[in-house]
């Protein structure tokens, strides 16, 4: 065998010293018992969080104007989801860095058209009333420039939107069928029917809540509730939890990047954070192969504490 130079951070010396009895099965059994008892104790003492899910019904009941404004943004294509881009639609720029544009490369896989999926299809699933049927057919037969003119007129007046007597009211007469559509969708939401319509568009069974969750995420209501609980992305929210429970603290480094520029300010912030984390993760996995990094423990000398008995015996 040829003698290669000994690399202290890669090679290990051959151990020729004594062995001592060590019962690993007993150790494992004790560990399971201790962890199980500790788990039961922590569960009894601290329980666990379970804040009720919000529905589109609770949102539109608690904040009908926020809901109606969001509904308008879905109809006129100004909402966050409408302008999201891939994987939902071609509505906006995708995130990327230089030639790296994976979001764009993979394209639209979960097609969402906010006007039809969030507003028009749900309304068409409703029992017909003369005014709603007329408004829908007026909208559907209009040119897109007419539709834009209506939503713009409605949008311009929507700062003065009120909700009273169970009706969404906006002071404009130039918005065509839009006031009826928005009001009908708000009524539908407040009845709970929109929650159902958004999940059942693909049939009887569903386990997919993409549409109602995206709709919820476009309003201010969900985000306000989360910010109040310190769960916002710019509040290190990823590692936080509702109430006072500890959260996913192991995400500290991932959420850290969202707090500082350029990650916090870039339009491709998510992509940059993921890219950064992927590089750091690769470094973490490959520590044994990276000169410098793999020498840190030998220089830190914490091992001297761990193996103090071994070193003492050597002297």
């Amino acid at each position: 065998m040829s003698k290669k130079p000994f690399r202290p951070d890669v090679d290990a010396p051959e151990y020729k010293g004594p062995y001592a009895p060590y019962d690993i099965i007993k150790e494992g059994t004790i560990a399971v018992v201790v962890v199980a008892l500790l788990t039961v104790a922590l569960a009894i003492v601290f329980s666990s969080p379970d804040e009720k899910a919000i529905t589109i019904k609770t949102w539109s009941t608690a904040a009908p104007v926020d809901f109606a404004q969001t509904a308008l943004s879905e109809l006129n294509g100004s909402s966050g989801v409408a302008g999201y881009g891939a994987p939902y639609n071609n509505g906006g720029p995708s995130q990327g860095w230089g030639f790296l544009q994976p979001e764009h490369w993979l394209g639209v896989h979960i097609p969402i058209n906010t006007a039809t999926d969030f507003v028009l299809n749900p309304l068409e699933s409703q029992p017909a009333t003369p005014s709603l049927s007329a408004a829908l057919s007026q909208w559907n037969s209009a040119s897109s420039s007419a539709q834009t003119a209506w939503t713009t007129a409605y949008s311009n007046a929507s700062a003065k939107m009120t909700f009273s007597g169970g009706e969404v009211k906006v002071p404009t007469t130039k918005a065509g069928p839009v006031p009826v559509l928005i009001n009908a969708l708000t009524q539908m939401a407040r009845s709970g029917a929109l929650d159902q319509a958004l999940v059942t568009q693909k049939g009887f069974y569903t386990t997919n809540y993409t549409k109602p969750l995206l709709f919820l995420s476009d309003g201010a209501y969900l985000g306000n509730l989360a910010d109040a609980q310190h769960l916002g992305g710019d509040q290190w929210g990823m590692m936080n939890e509702t109430g006072q429970w500890p959260g996913q603290a192991w995400l500290w480094l991932y959420t850290f990047w969202y707090q500082i520029p350029p990650w916090s300010t870039s339009a491709s912030g998510d992509f940059l954070v993921w890219g950064t984390m992927m590089i750091l993760t690769a470094l973490f996995i490959l520590v044994p192969f990276i000169p410098g990094l793999r020498s840190i423990p030998r220089r830190l000398k914490i091992y001297r504490i761990i193996w103090r008995e071994h070193y003492a015996a050597q002297e």
């Binding site: 386990t207 997919n208 969750l213």
Partner: peptide, 14 residues
């Protein structure tokens, strides 16, 4: 989504 992974790994799909 920013990594492109959202096309296949949809976190909104329970």
């Amino acid at each position: 989504n920013s990594t492109g992974g959202g096309a296949f790994f949809n976190v909104l799909n329970l």
